[in-house]
Design a protein around this nucleic acid. Structure first.
Lengths: 197, 197
DNA sequence: CCTACCGATCGGTAGG
DNA sequence: CCTACCGATCGGTAGG
């Protein structure tokens, strides 16, 4: 990696850290430059402006790019095993980068989703492949469009993460203990055909 | 209502509109004052500062205050009817105030949830009552803690709304058609005891 | 509730 | 002529 690419990556990583912790407008170019170890003016050799930096951070760290591999790499013989394994990997991805979903909030609040279509263009083909895989194994699944199943699955993690973020420190423990297990259980029960087990 | 209270309310309503559309840091005190029809300095006769205004907006317009009545007012003989009716009312509440959830994003990104505990203190007792009601009617419900059922139900709407916001304009229609119906169907199937219907 | 104004800091750019 | 970056400062705006 050249010196220039290295500096550019340092700026992106520093911006990612600061934006998710302090928000976009809450982070100044001066603070960003200082923490990245370069002068303010130097930032503009790599990016045309502040929004250009957010765009790069968003493209490199979008939650979908963490979630898709977790789903794609799920292992298991039965649907139950597949979903449980995918859920475990999603949970691990969330814990690895606990505030990566903040990027989506910034994108919605500050940029009105103007960058989301770029992410979607790269994520969509991979989503199609996942749908195809699910439809192959659809033996014991209920007759629900695969897109709706994926949406329910991904939605479960967004709402789980949102609830943990919002309520984590202020709710009684029984509101959160084993919450993920229960939510996955409800989802599984909701998408599987009823059968005599 | 006195003149002063009227002005205060105008500031809150204007701030609510601007914050949800432009974000917190994206809205200046000057713009807020101008759109509220008063001078910049006059705002500080009603609020101690910008954060104080957000706090008032947040307390008056928190999504929970829209969602709780929708759940509390649900009508129906069976669990299915109750959930379907509650879902319909939640959906109506979302459509009435399409970007009210942005307040939560601002609270998370800009304020790190510092105001959420205030909301929770007023919302919690009402949540307890809903739990009690659900446990009375728990005949055909699976053995899942009522708090987990409420969490799944509320989470469904957050993730639905988030998906609509993020993907609304850029996804093919089949990703969204009847999405709410399918998600409610999956939830219902997931929380109801299997029975010979 | 307004006019007038503050210390400081904002995102971005100058020449070298 | 290139790259990567500097110290200094631009015109405007932030909350108060």
């Amino acid at each position: 990696m050249s010196k220039g690419e290295d500096t550019r990556q340092t700026i992106i990583d520093t911006a990612h850290k600061l934006f998710t912790r302090q928000g976009y407008h809450g982070t100044s170019m001066r603070q960003l430059a200082k923490e990245a170890g370069i002068a303010l003016g130097g930032v503009y050799n790599h990016f045309s402006g502040k929004e250009d930096i957010f765009r790069a951070v968003f493209m490199e760290n979008h939650p979908f790019l963490e979630m898709l591999p977790a789903i794609e790499g799920a292992q298991g013989e039965t649907i139950e095993d597949l979903v449980h394994d995918a859920a475990a990997q999603m949970l691990a991805a969330i814990k690895r980068k606990p505030d990566f979903i903040n990027l989506i909030f910034i994108e919605i609040v500050e940029f009105k989703n103007t960058h989301t279509h770029e992410i979607f263009e790269t994520a969509f083909p991979r989503g199609v492949q996942i749908v195809a895989r699910m439809e192959e194994a659809q033996g014991s699944l209920r007759a629900i469009p695969a897109l709706m199943l994926i949406r329910a699955f991904i939605g479960l993690f967004f709402s789980y993460h949102l609830a943990e973020t919002m309520l984590g420190e202020i709710t009684p423990p029984e509101f959160r203990e084993n919450a993920m297990d229960y939510q996955v259980d409800i989802l599984l029960h909701g998408i599987l055909e009823r059968s005599e087990e």
